[in-house]
């Protein structure tokens, strides 16, 4: 691996100085599980890395009046096993527990999963249906971006040079909310998503507000408003079929080394139907 420098600031002020070193490309480093292979293969360039794991608040996972605070450096394995997350934000735990392998989940962070911005990342679709808000910090101050506006393209986000994602705020869903994250991959363990679907049904005005997000079938994760509208009126078998078809219409998958677009279109429909049915089953209980 080509040499690079390493900094580990303890304050944000120090971090922003490193990130804006004149003439240098300084890469923010969280879990390093994407960085090391991508840097070695020349996909990413850097003169130095700025390890953000010692910054205040970035390791915190706690409930606040605004909802769940997930610091950027909270691990996938922490999200997957947290009783708090399991109790109220189950769909996020489901996404986190299918990222990579146990070894990867013990290093990989939610901030890294978001900032790498791979279309097949497993935590963004759950964050989409949970209406999460991304918190960013820079020398200029703090700003908040709805997660649905965070990703701009394949591996592109709104994060500017000199700016860091410090964490995510996830509103607490009303009691009785249920969700499901379904992922299809070539093999069950330790593989990237071909198609993924997050479904959430939250009680509202005596009915349910349905939300559906798809992963790996467009340059960024996408919500499926047409399917959501259909289900919010009722979720009998015919409506579920309609919603699944709407999801297929919204998806814009590509053909790549993992599968063809034709296969992905079909699987969007099947996986959406399956995930919605699982949520509907949970609602009956």
């Amino acid at each position: 691996m080509q040499p690079f420098d390493y900094y580990k600031p303890k304050t944000f002020e120090e971090a922003f100085d490193y990130l804006t070193l004149p003439g240098k490309t300084v890469f923010p480093l969280a879990g390093a599980t994407d960085f090391i292979p991508s840097y070695r293969d020349g996909v990413w360039q850097a003169d130095a890395v700025c390890d953000i794991k010692a910054l205040p608040g970035v390791r915190d996972l706690r409930e606040t009046p605004e909802g769940l605070w997930v610091g950027a450096c909270v691990l996938m394995s922490e999200l997957a096993r947290s009783p708090l997350v399991r109790a109220h934000w189950e769909v996020l735990a489901q996404g986190a527990e299918v990222v990579g392998s146990e070894q990867v989940r013990n290093r990989a962070t939610i901030g890294g999963n978001m900032c790498t911005a791979s279309p097949c990342a497993d935590t963004p679709p759950p964050l989409y249906v949970l209406d999460a808000v991304v918190v960013l910090k820079s020398k200029a101050g703090e700003r908040r971006v709805p997660v649905t506006e965070f990703f701009t393209f394949v591996r592109k986000t709104v994060v500017q040079k000199g700016e860091l994602v410090t964490g995510v705020i996830i509103p607490k869903p009303p009691a009785g909310t249920v969700g499901e994250y379904h992922k299809l991959s070539r093999r069950q363990g330790c593989d990237l998503s071909l198609v993924s679907v997050a479904v959430l049904a939250a009680p509202r005005n005596g009915g349910y507000d349905w939300r559906i997000a798809l992963g790996a079938v467009a340059p960024t994760p996408i919500r499926v408003p047409d399917a959501e509208a259909i289900l919010s009126k009722g979720w009998d078998a015919a409506s579920i079929d309609e919603a699944a078809k709407a999801a297929e219409k919204t998806a814009k998958p590509i053909t790549d080394v993992r599968s063809s677009d034709v296969y992905r279109y079909e699987m969007v429909r099947n996986l959406t139907r399956r995930a919605v049915r699982s949520v509907a089953e949970k609602l009956k209980k």
Binding site: L29, A32, T33, V49, K53, Q103, N106, R107
Partner: peptide
């Protein structure tokens, strides 16, 4: 794979300085 603070990690994906 090694245990780092009790958790299994890929030591190829951890910088030594970390």
């Amino acid at each position: 794979t090694v245990l780092m603070n009790g958790k299994a990690v890929n030591s190829c994906l951890v910088l030594a300085v970390e």
